[in-house]
Design a protein around this nucleic acid. Sequence first.
DNA 1: AAGAACTGCAACCGCCGGCGT
DNA 2: CACGCCGGCGGTTGCAGTTCT
Length: 291
Amino acid sequence: MGRTPCCESRQGLKKGPWTPEEDKLLVDYVQANAPGNWRMLPKLAGLNRCGKSCRLRWTNYLRPDIKRGPFTPEEHKSILQLHAIVGNKWSMIAAQLPGRTDNEIKNYWNTNLKKQLRQAALVGEKHHSALASPGASAGAGCLAARHTAQWETARLEAEARLSMLSTSAATTSVTASSSSSTAAAGGEHGADAPSDVFLRLWNSEVGDTFRRKSAGRAAREGSAPREGAQLPAAAPLPPPGDDSSAASNVTTAVTTEEYQVFLEMAAEELGLFHGGFSLYPPADGLFAEFE
DNA sequence: AAGAACTGCAACCGCCGGCGT
DNA sequence: CACGCCGGCGGTTGCAGTTCT
């Protein structure tokens, strides 16, 4: 509300690629003084740029701890796994990959991995049967693409089901209904289905604890979910045969705050993002080609 | 060899939430 | 409580380099 444009772009501030001289001015200033107020920084550092541009240049390129070079297989795998869980939360993903920036990961996803997804769609149509047989001549790239697509599909499915589960958890008695309904959902695809990564979290003690805390909070606040709040990332799948209004009901079932709390609990209690994401065993071959 | 098409990435843009007043 | 500032985030764009025809 009432925000002035972040950049006084009409006041002759420079835009476009940074020169080595500008980089040096920025690096010298930030290393001598903490960045502090980015809005004031350009003046203080003698740069004819807007503060936002300076911050972006520093965080995405000049920061000393930034790791350059191609993504390693481990990083690739981590990105796939984390994206399957949190979606396009590039900053969250970047936080788990030391030295990588959200911008870099976002670019990597939008170029490499999305391309793989597109290819996967084509391959899936044309060579479904060939890929199904272990001895088929599908290359590692096809396999990787297929796995990427599986993760993406799994994430979307899990999002949709998590939303529906949370709806029922919020509208019924917490202890009784959550255990029965989640058990049903968990059993639906079998214990090892990749689409259940999210649901395993949700159905685990972590999810249970979260639901109890969440229900308690809701009771205290006597609240319906915040309007407009929804699961982050791509649009959740509407229930089959559903109309748009019902679908929007589903998307408002979990607030982003609750969602974040849930993820944090999972990370804390399961060591999810540190040294091994074990809810779905990669030994199954899901990412075997990168190891 | 030259132009077209494609790719990858740095940078920009607009929106949002947190915080101070 | 309303407003404005600021930093942060995700989506998009522009352009240089590369590959293809």
